[in-house]
Simulated scan of single mutants.
Amino acid sequence: MKSFSVSVVAALVATVQAGLRFGCSTLTIQRLDPVVQPGQNPSTHLHHVVGGNQFNATMTGDVGARGTCTTCQMSQDFSNYWTAVMYFKHPTNGSYHRVPVINNAALAAGTTGGITIYYTQYDLSKDNLKQQPITVFRPGFRMTVGNPATNATEGAKHIGLSYNCLQTLLNRGPEMRDFPTKPCPAGIFVTHHFPACWDGVNLDSPDHQSHMFNTIDLDGFTNAPPCPSSHPVRVPQVTYETVWDTTQFSKLWKSGDPNPFVWSFEGDSGFGTHADYMFGWKGDALALAMNKSECFYDGCGSITKQDMSVANKCTVKDMVGENIDGWVSHLPGFP
């Protein structure tokens, strides 16, 4: 298992050829899923969503071209990124309370909750003899990673899906495949690392994953082998990082008790963690950035960064209308 601190990550990114790392404030928290359950309102379980204001129950075509604002620091990124929502289950009465999201370390000032997004060429390192050119996604592209139905045996093999029990926001502690087994001093850090090899044809697939292929064996931020002939197109490596503020529940987690945190799909095992992605960059903005070299964190000379006070004004309406806050007797969507 790996243990990371910000200084270690900084050392890793020193070898990168080109990539982006930026924050997106929270756009909405609703029971909608336009990838897995398009058109269904509400969807089965609750999601935490960041990105462009075209997010809705049914998303087709070029959402980037239609977007008018985004919660992301990169002002030309109208993509949407979402994950399931973490809840705390009270050990005594069985009620639930939504766990808030807090900022990851080193994000732009003013970022509100949200998710840290990576687009990298070569998983933070490059082997010139093996790597392939980067082709960016096309309008309409979407994909998922992980599966809420995954059990512990399958979960142990999950690629790039991990947890860290934060000691501080700068000290992540060891990397784990399941929920932490004791209270975390600074919250729970969750990583979703998507595949980076595409079949080059399909913008989606029935399971939202078969059009993609992952050449990484286990850990996300490692040098990726070449793409196979079945999925020959190397696309940007997309990764999410989310920090869940579990600290306010630490006093309710008694020593020796099992993990009290669950995902919004009634997942009391961490192996079911999953995430969705829908491409929505304006024009060729992402392609220009991915074709740059020796840049990271910034806009790679071609993307305009917006102040997060502007990003935070971007919203979408509540399209479901249900109580997701405070103590509730059941998870949204479940009896």
Rank of each mutant, 00 (worst) to 15 (best):
L288A: 14
M59H: 00
Y118C: 01
D257V: 11
V136Y: 07
Y119N: 06
P232T: 15
F78T: 03
S125V: 12
S229I: 10
D257R: 05
S162T: 14
P185L: 14
T71K: 01
G155R: 15
C314A: 03
G51S: 00
V316A: 03
T70M: 12
M176S: 09
D276E: 13
R98A: 14
T239N: 13
H211E: 00
A275F: 06
G326S: 04
S309P: 08
T135H: 11
P34F: 12
T135Y: 03
S43R: 02
K2R: 10
G299T: 09
A18P: 00
L166T: 09
G321S: 01
C165Y: 13
G61D: 03
S3C: 01
N147D: 13
S264T: 13
L252M: 15
I216A: 14
T68A: 08
N53C: 13
V99N: 00
K254L: 15
I102T: 14
G23R: 04
M74F: 01
S5M: 07
G114K: 12
T191C: 08
S302V: 15
A65P: 06
P258E: 12
P42L: 13
L252W: 14
I29G: 13
N56A: 11
D318H: 04
A152Y: 03
W82K: 02
S162P: 01
L107Q: 12
E294G: 09
N291T: 10
G51M: 07
W244M: 01
N164F: 03
P258S: 12
Y118T: 04
V243K: 01
N171W: 08
G160M: 00
G67N: 02
G321L: 02
A152G: 06
D33L: 00
A109K: 01
A65L: 07
A10E: 11
V235R: 07
P228L: 08
P225G: 00
T144R: 15
D219F: 14
S43Y: 04
K89P: 00
F189Q: 07
D217M: 03
R21T: 08
R98G: 05
G67A: 13
P180H: 04
